[in-house]
């Protein structure tokens, strides 16, 4: 690589990292730095008089624990549903050629283009009727609808990256279709499946609109914080924001290797 090429590469890397890391860092400084840090201007680079006080106060706010639990349940269920439904759909897309496969791919993506706001009222009505309203399960169903397109398309790419011959070899050596999937396809797909599961989890964890509309008392953390924080002082908002982004970061960090593997597979 030429010198200027290397310079471009590195400045690109620095810019991208800054784009992501600086806001996170500032939120962190605000969350741990107390009132003073939150209001200080210009912002200091180093945190001043750090303390866990705000975070702890924040966690003790009435209802935060319950909301966090709801978020975990909703995100966990979303993860489960989108994998249970998305992986078989992805497998079918990858392995079978059927009429309308391409149209189906497009339709799957188009569900994301459908504005949730229009659905909100009818959904609320149906959820109230069926008893799903104000439950994590109800929220997770909507979140599954949001996460499913990604789960389907990403797993389709994943399964496509696993040569058909592996399965065929398994069949020849005595496996049924399901045995071949269990013994050969799933082990090879596991990293990618884990990554798309985490992705579904994060989608649910971050989603706020549907969660706000479909719950009143059993709010998820994002929805709950949205109401609480709009009425709190700014340094508590930092604390709340920090608590919201931490799980996503930890999760993505934990599966980063698989995400790389996933890209490696799908870009083939």
């Amino acid at each position: 690589m030429t010198r200027s090429g290397r310079f471009l590469l590195w400045s690109g890397i620095v810019a991208l990292c800054a784009w992501v890391l600086v806001p996170i860092y500032l939120i962190g400084v605000g969350a741990f730095g107390g009132r003073a840090a939150a209001f200080r201007w210009p912002k200091g680079i180093l945190p001043v008089n750090t303390s866990l006080d705000q975070i702890l106060v924040f966690l003790r706010i009435e209802g935060v624990a319950n909301a966090a639990m709801n978020s975990l349940i909703a995100a966990g269920l979303t993860m489960l549903f989108s994998l249970l439904l998305g992986a078989p759909a992805g497998y079918a897309l990858a392995r079978f050629s059927f009429r309308g496969a391409d149209a189906f791919r497009l339709m799957v993506l188009l569900t994301r283009a459908f504005p949730l706001a229009i659905l909100a009222l009818p959904l609320t009505v149906i959820f109230i009727k069926t008893g799903l309203y104000d439950t994590p399960l109800g929220v997770s169903l909507v979140h599954t609808a949001l996460a499913l397109p990604f789960a389907t398309l990403v797993t389709a790419g994943l399964f496509q990256g696993i040569p058909r011959e592996f399965e065929e070899a398994a069949w020849v050596f005595g496996c049924t279709r399901f045995q071949a999937i269990r013994k050969v396809v799933l082990p090879l797909a596991l990293p990618g499946l884990a990554a798309s599961a985490v992705f579904a989890f994060v989608i649910s964890w971050n989603e706020v609109f549907a969660a706000s509309v479909l719950t009143v008392r059993e709010r998820t953390l994002t929805a709950y914080l949205l109401t609480v924080l709009s009425e709190s002082p700014i340094h508590y908002r930092f604390a709340g924001g920090f608590i919201l982004i931490v799980p996503s970061i930890v999760f993505i960090f934990a599966v980063r290797r698989y995400l790389f593997a996933l890209w490696g597979v799908t870009s083939r």
Binding site: P163, E165, F166, E168, A169, A170, W171, V172, F173, G174, C175, T176, V184, P187, L188
Partner: peptide, 20 residues
């Protein structure tokens, strides 16, 4: 019949050795 029920073994042209 399915491949599994034909009672044969095969060596694939591109090996298809399981990587895991």
């Amino acid at each position: 019949l399915r491949p599994a029920d034909r009672g044969l073994a095969m060596v694939f042209q591109n090996y298809a050795v399981f990587p895991h």
